[in-house]
């Protein structure tokens, strides 16, 4: 049995703000009006206070590597080249992003990194080419 089906997912209110930010070369967080916690990627409601969020702010684009891996595997098949995948959390925020680390940077938990934006940006996670050492 073969079934081909395409799915289209809306980014939604909060992630649309984030994607718009990426297109402008900025990192956007949501901020809870009650507990003031900031979340990247932004959320439409506070996971702790269970209140809606209406405030979106730009944050310093410096993140810390929480953990990392090296892989040639993608969802289907191999890429041929080894890629370092990092899970980074922006300073003073909750949440985090999965992304690539540039080949010149040696991965380390605790390393401060920043996003490298592409010149041509369309409002996608791929607007970030990769992360690189912040210093």
């Amino acid at each position: 049995m073969d079934i081909e089906s395409q799915y289209e997912y809306p980014a939604g209110v909060a992630l649309s703000k984030f994607l718009e930010g990426l297109r402008n070369g900025k990192i956007i967080a949501s901020r809870c009006e009650k507990c003031f916690s900031k979340h990247v990627p932004p959320r439409a409601y506070c996971l702790d206070c269970f209140k809606p969020i209406n405030e979106y702010i730009e944050v310093d684009p410096v993140a810390e590597v929480q953990t990392y891996t090296r892989s040639r595997l993608l969802a289907v098949g191999e890429t041929g080249e080894e890629i370092v995948w990092v899970f980074v959390r922006f300073v003073d925020t909750l949440g985090g992003l999965l992304h690539m680390l540039d080949t010149a940077t040696t991965p380390r938990i605790g390393l401060k990194v920043k996003p490298v934006f592409r010149e041509k940006r369309v409002g996608s996670i791929h607007d970030i080419k990769c992360f690189t050492a912040a210093d």
């Binding site: 997912y9 992630l15 891996t69 892989s71 938990i109």
Partner: peptide
């Protein structure tokens, strides 16, 4: 997650590798 993670082509094992490393 379909907007920020799926476009990166994640393999399920990545997430375990990240957790194991941590």
């Amino acid at each position: 997650e379909p907007i920020l993670e799926q476009p990166l082509g994640p393999n399920l094992i990545w997430i375990f590798a990240l957790e194991m490393r941590r």
